[in-house]
Design a binder for these strands. Structure first.
Length: 185
DNA sequence: TCGCAGATTGCCT
DNA sequence: GGCAATCTGCGAA
């Protein structure tokens, strides 16, 4: 169980998005530990990606995407939902991040059930806003270092057998890019 | 089972 | 002022 290093995130956003599949996300709340395997991601670069928050200019909201790789980027949307991203990019890229769309619950399932107010395991963390609810991720977790053993980090996992690339979900521009990644067990 | 509209706040144009 | 990297419930078939 090794925490992913800074170097892991210092690569092309799309490569990192694929490599994050099968890794384990760890959330610590006090003494409680919640973990889950990442099963779906989406890549958002800056330049040439109209769907990305950082495709235009740097603002107060998206500044994390321009900063240090391996940090968390959390944003609020639709008036009621948070989404969790990991900043990842090559040195040449000025911005980029990977959206964590879904995880598979491993530990702390009872906590997730309480947070989500549902006992359907399949419905706990199978969406970007669902997993932030289950793991209690809000803008308080904005710009957290995911390469350190703190309240939120990502550790090594298994390498998936088959990666599936699909169009990204929930956006109106840039839908020609197959930057949504999931895998078969 | 499927599809659509409402919720609800902060951000950008 | 309008819309957003979404989720849920409800109504129709």
């Amino acid at each position: 169980m090794n925490i992913l290093s800074r170097k892991f995130y210092n690569r092309d956003t799309i490569i990192v998005a694929k490599d994050l599949l099968g890794k384990t996300l760890v959330r610590k709340i006090g003494k409680q530990k919640i973990t889950g395997v990442i099963i779906e991601t989406e890549a958002y670069t800056g330049k040439n990606d109209p769907a990305s928050h950082s495709s235009r200019k740097k603002t107060e909201r998206n500044k994390a995407m321009f900063g240090q790789v391996g940090m968390s980027y959390v944003y609020f949307t639709y008036g009621m939902h948070y989404c969790f991203n990991v900043v990842a990019k090559k040195s040449e890229q000025q911005s980029g991040a990977v959206l964590i769309r879904a995880i598979q619950p491993v530990k702390g399932i009872s906590v997730m059930i309480k947070n989500r107010k549902t006992d359907n395991i399949l419905n706990l963390t199978n969406g970007p806003a669902k997993l932030t609810q289950a793991l209690q991720i809000t803008t308080n977790q904005y710009n957290i270092d995911l390469t350190k053993n703190s309240e939120l980090f990502i550790i090594d996992g298994v390498r998936p057998k088959k990666i599936i690339a699909k169009p990204r979900v929930g956006i109106k521009t840039g839908i020609d890019k197959l930057w949504n990644f999931s895998f078969e067990f």
